[in-house]
Simulated scan of single mutants.
Amino acid sequence: MTDQHPTVATAAPRTAGAEHVIEATALAEATADAAGIAVAELGTIEEMTEACALLDHIWRPDPGDPLITLKLLKGLSHSGSYVAGVFADGKLAGACVGFLASDGLHSHIAGIDSTLRGRHAGLALKLHQRAWALRRGIGLISWTFDPLVSRNAYFNLTKLGAVPTQYLANFYGAMHDEINAGTETDRLLVHWDLTSGVAAPPVDGALDRAVDGLSVGPDGGPVRGRVDGRRVLVAVPADIERLRRADPAAAGRWRAATREVLGGLMATGHTVTGFTRDGRYVIEGQDER
């Protein structure tokens, strides 16, 4: 079924100047150094083979449906798209693949091995991608993520400052890997303006006039509330991946509720302006912005 939620209009990113390229490159290098890793483009067949195996190890897809293939990686790299890896102690421990799109660079997939958890390797990888794009005159990166994954929402919207532009219902169809667990794959499409700096202003202290459009009930399930406020909060579970394994039916209820409330608000012109530390999207109407 084709998604019916319209794309939210966003201003075109500014053209990157030399100062943006210098700043972005320095920040990416400093972040990688602080994390004790190196981020670099992948160039050899051996590296790309390792990247495919690593991504499959992280997602554990159905053996007949790999996330990405060596031949596709080679073609993307050769044609000028983004194929990069994270190296820790000389070993590949992360990978990211993006392809050139009509509005900039679309980052298709990124994964970091769990051994690097807590070292900000994901941030270093995205900052490397930002610097790579700016050096090529690209001012915008887009990607999709599951709106139910709280840590990814906080990282994308708050730490990076990306802006959701579209709610995509069941975008990839059912994915039978350990992360998606055969569930419908709703996604938020975000745009990251590479010339506007990194990180978004905090939102937690400016919620006095907000209403709860979706909250977590006493049993951990979704509770629908009001959506008529100028600022609406939409909560998601603390750990949807654990919930999918422990209680698939409850995870399905969260998918349906988030699609209805978050997707519905975006479809009627509301804008997602942030994500709080305690796991709530902040959504504002036209009059509030």
Rank of each mutant, 00 (worst) to 15 (best):
M1K: 02
M1Y: 14
Q4E: 15
A11C: 02
G17I: 10
E19N: 12
H20L: 13
E23I: 07
E23K: 13
A24S: 15
L27P: 02
A28F: 11
A30H: 15
A30N: 03
A35K: 09
A40E: 13
A40C: 12
E50I: 00
A51H: 13
A53P: 00
L54W: 13
L54G: 00
L54T: 00
D56Q: 07
D56Y: 04
W59Y: 15
G64Q: 14
L67T: 11
L67Y: 08
I68F: 05
T69A: 07
L70Q: 03
G80M: 09
S81T: 01
S81H: 15
Y82V: 03
V83S: 01
A84Q: 13
A84V: 08
K91A: 13
G94S: 00
G98D: 02
L100R: 15
L105A: 00
L105Q: 10
G111V: 11
I112S: 02
R117S: 10
R119G: 06
K126L: 13
L127W: 07
A131Q: 00
R136P: 02
I141V: 12
W143Y: 15
T144A: 01
D146W: 07
D146I: 00
N152A: 11
A153I: 02
Y154N: 09
F155C: 11
Q166K: 07
A174I: 07
A174H: 14
M175R: 11
E178W: 07
A181C: 05
L188W: 12
H191P: 01
H191E: 13
W192Q: 04
L194D: 06
G197F: 07
G197H: 10
A200C: 02
P201W: 15
G205C: 09
V211G: 03
V216M: 11
P218I: 04
P218C: 03
G220H: 03
V223N: 08
V223W: 01
V227S: 12
D228N: 11
R231C: 14
R231I: 12
A235L: 02
V236Q: 00
P237M: 03
E241S: 06
L243R: 00
R244K: 14
R245N: 10
D247W: 12
A249Q: 14
A249H: 14
W254Y: 09
A256N: 07
G264H: 12
V272I: 05
T276C: 04
R277Q: 10
D278K: 11
R280M: 06
Y281D: 01
Q286S: 09
D287G: 05
